[in-house]
Design a protein around this nucleic acid. Structure first.
Length: 222
DNA sequence: CACCAGGGTGGTT
DNA sequence: AACCACCATGGT
């Protein structure tokens, strides 16, 4: 059986999902630094747990690069307990803050303004992978980046009919959606959509992507 | 009670 | 390269 391997039509998917769900207002945060913190804490954890952890951090005062970097280990891990892996997340957050500070108290804004490869710099931190780095670049740095997450992979597989490599999803999306706002909305919409459709079992009734989904007409795939 | 979240790393085969 | 244990909470 040959199926026309469809392509990943990012712009069209953005249009359809935006029409169905509206603007998801993804990644609410008071500051870019809060986005960065949330990006590490949200790894493999429900967002509500991250909210609780950030509230605990804020109980010590407004988030700041220096304040977070200097927070004592027991207090830091206590704040991060709701995020499943408090010790690991505390270590990752500290390593990231140290890279940002660069040994000279550099701020996050200065990091983004610096003339360097920001993606490579983020990826060089142990505990920061492609998805976390791209989330920080997009939502904290407001630069053109696209985080490929589990929802994106699953939805792409459903739509296209076969597994699409991460690098291709990222490249295709960036070449088809040029604005930062569009990229930011698309990622949020894919998560919102993924939480109702395209889960373990096909669930195509009422799906706003049904018309462009190769498995939509297959009914039940076992 | 079992299941699983908006991942990434390091060690196995 | 693919696979897997680990990390060790809180909601359904």
């Amino acid at each position: 059986m040959r199926e026309e391997k469809g392509a990943w039509q990012a712009a069209q998917i953005l249009h359809r999902l935006a029409g169905a769900y509206g603007d998801p207002h993804w990644w609410p945060a008071d500051s870019a630094l809060e986005v960065l913190v949330g990006a590490v804490l949200t790894q493999s954890v429900r967002w509500q747990n991250v909210v609780t952890a950030i509230q605990r951090l804020k109980a010590y005062g407004p988030l700041s690069e220096a304040g977070l970097g200097q927070m004592p280990w027991p207090q830091l891990t206590a704040c991060l307990r709701p995020t499943r892996f408090p010790n690991q997340k505390a270590k990752r957050l500290r390593a990231l803050l140290e890279m940002i500070a660069d040994g000279r108290g550099r701020t996050l804004a200065d990091f983004f303004a610096a003339d360097l490869d920001h993606r490579q710099a983020l990826l060089s931190v142990s505990g920061v992978g492609a998805e976390t780095a791209d989330a920080i670049l997009l939502y904290a740095g407001r630069s053109q980046a696209f985080p490929v997450d589990a929802y994106t992979r699953r939805i792409a597989q459903r739509l296209v009919g076969n597994v699409v490599p991460d690098h291709q999803l990222r490249h295709d999306t960036l070449s088809q959606v040029s604005s930062v706002d569009g990229l930011a909305q698309l990622h949020g919409l894919l998560v919102v959509h993924g939480q109702r459709h395209c889960q373990a079992r096909p669930h195509c009734s009422g799906c706003p992507l049904a018309e462009i989904c190769v498995s939509a007409e297959l009914g039940q795939t076992a």
